[in-house]
Simulated scan of single mutants.
Amino acid sequence: MITTSVAEAASCLKKGQVLAYPTEAVWGLGCDPYNEQAFHQILKLKQRPIEKGVILLAANVAQVEHLLQGLSPEMREKVIASWSNRKPTERATTWLLPAGEHIPSWIKGNHPKVAVRVTTHSLCVALCQAFNGFIVSTSANPAGLNPARSLQEASQYFANDLEYLNGDLGLSQEPSQIIDAETGEIIRT
């Protein structure tokens, strides 16, 4: 199914289906992060090892507030500012945050932290709001291939193996940078 309806796309996620959708810079694959079967379908589609972990994408800080509580007040402000003060053409920032007990082990992979991004991409914001929570967000491509930058490229990779939310990519030219919020180490430049 290809839809332009955010409500239909969120319904697919709630039913345990995998969804391809445009993000700030590339197309992503998403699912309900608490649905292990859907998550394993993403790993199969991408030919990605579970050890790597994935990014969680949220519509707003409230959806990930519980993950920010282990940070110092200064770092918490820095993380939130990077999400809320980003211009549409700027590269998004994903932060490695203390995972806490509510994040499934399959989301973290072999890591003690979880990668989280609050998006300003309007379609992704609407999708996370309609889903009523954060979703998995990993690039829409099989391992070793370039991330899809259009519906056509995503469907060439995955054909009818998933659902598609059609829409426009954001204006960023590259995927998010990843920074460890506790150490400041840049994981992906």
Rank of each mutant, 00 (worst) to 15 (best):
D32P: 08
I178P: 00
Q156W: 08
S122G: 00
L151T: 07
A181R: 03
K52A: 00
N141R: 08
S155G: 02
A25L: 07
R86N: 13
I187H: 04
P142M: 10
A181D: 05
L169P: 00
A25E: 13
W83H: 02
A159V: 07
L127F: 12
Q156N: 15
G28V: 06
C31E: 12
A181W: 00
A38D: 07
S5V: 06
G167M: 10
E90C: 02
P175C: 04
P33N: 13
G100E: 15
K15G: 00
A7F: 05
I135H: 01
L19Q: 09
E65Y: 06
V79N: 02
L165K: 00
K46C: 10
T3S: 12
V26F: 12
H111V: 06
Y164I: 08
S155M: 15
V64F: 07
V54N: 10
A7Q: 14
I103T: 08
A62R: 12
P98R: 04
P88G: 05
H66V: 01
I2G: 01
I135Y: 00
V54T: 14
S72A: 12
L43S: 04
P104R: 13
T94K: 04
I50C: 15
S72W: 05
R86M: 11
Q17H: 14
L165R: 04
V6R: 12
L43Q: 10
I107T: 04
L145G: 01
Q177Y: 02
G100F: 11
S155Q: 15
T4F: 07
I179C: 02
A25R: 11
L97D: 03
C12L: 09
A10I: 12
L29Y: 09
A59C: 05
G70S: 11
L71G: 01
S172T: 05
S105P: 09
Q156L: 13
R48F: 04
L57E: 03
K44P: 00
V26W: 06
G144K: 11
Y34S: 11
I178H: 06
P142H: 06
A140F: 13
A92D: 10
S139Q: 11
L19I: 10
N141K: 09
A25C: 13
N160K: 15
L96G: 02
A59P: 03
T89M: 13
C12F: 15
L151Q: 08
I55H: 07
N146M: 15
P147I: 11
V114M: 07
I55Q: 04
S139D: 09
A115Q: 10
N166S: 13
P142Y: 07
V26R: 08
N110A: 05
L13W: 06
V64P: 05
